[in-house]
């Protein structure tokens, strides 16, 4: 992703006006829309969707919060208000499949919306990208990161919460011959510290910040790149690298960005 040129992203409402229906709803999420760093990830993934000529659309200004942070912070009322409202919106567009980049959104859609009447086929972007790569539909330049040491930080809501541990690793193993695991990985990975509403508040008093503990663990692998697959993990790891004064020699990229870069985007 070089410049800030506009990329063409179809909107659900526009398609509906033409009586068209995309295969996938691409759910951007709050960080994907508003966090300056993570917007680049959204762009990267959308550009891959365009590259693949995937039939998709986003909700744009119709998107709202899934309610996940409210639910984890104890506000079930607000969560369900958001959820019921969204389910109605999804049904009005006859949404069948949803792709998410945020693991937290993925988790609520997949596991928690069905009980409220919203059952959809929910796909995480790492699963989607892994499929596209293994089926040969995506042909990234495999020399781009071949020699780079990459470590992967598992987001709790992909790995522990939903057993999605291998697709991101398959992608990374394709891109680099040097995927180095941290000591705590997969189902036993250490949280970045942002989940459960922590993203939106100061941490409780302790003797260390969780994101620093995790960043230090990542740095022990002597990586060139710390790969993440969650907006909140990215915010935490990026902060951790700043705190450790390592942002110049160690980069934090999302998996979608690595693929987009290797596709020359």
């Amino acid at each position: 992703m070089t410049g800030k040129e506009k990329i063409n992203v179809p909107l659900m409402a526009e398609l509906a006006a033409r009586e068209e229906k995309p295969e996938y709803l691409f759910w951007v999420g709050c960080a994907g829309a508003f966090d300056d760093r993570y917007k680049k990830v959204t762009r990267a993934f959308a550009s891959i969707l365009n590259h693949l000529e995937t039939s998709y659309a986003v909700l744009g200004t119709e998107e709202t919060c899934t309610g996940d942070p409210a639910r984890r912070a104890g506000n079930e009322m607000l969560f369900q208000m958001q959820a019921l409202q969204l389910i109605e919106l999804f049904h009005s567009y006859d949404v069948q499949k949803i792709i998410t980049i945020c693991p937290h959104c993925y988790n609520v859609f997949k596991n928690e919306y069905p009980e409220l009447g919203g059952t959809f086929d929910v796909v995480s972007y790492v699963e989607f990208l892994d499929n596209a790569l293994s089926e040969g539909r995506l042909k990234p330049d495999l020399s781009k990161y071949a020699g780079v040491r990459i470590t992967y930080h598992d987001p709790c809501y992909l790995a522990r919460a939903n057993d999605v541990t291998e697709p991101p690793r398959q992608i990374l193993r394709l891109l680099t011959g040097h995927l180095i695991e941290m000591e705590r990985n997969r189902h036993f990975a250490l949280c970045c510290g942002a989940g459960g509403g922590q993203m939106f508040k100061e941490a409780e008093k302790g003797d260390k910040e969780i994101f620093i503990e995790r960043t230090e663990e990542a740095l022990e692998t002597q990586p060139g790149i710390i790969a993440t697959a969650c907006p909140f993990c990215m915010i935490m790891v990026t902060d951790g690298l700043k705190y450790k004064n390592r942002e110049d020699d160690v980069k934090n990229y999302d998996i979608a960005e690595l693929i987009a870069h290797a596709l020359g985007k």
Binding site: K6, G32, A33, K39, R43, T61
Partner: peptide, 11 residues
Amino acid sequence: FSNEDRMQWAG
């Protein structure tokens, strides 16, 4: 953030 800015990422 304002909901109106939700598509700013696309440029």
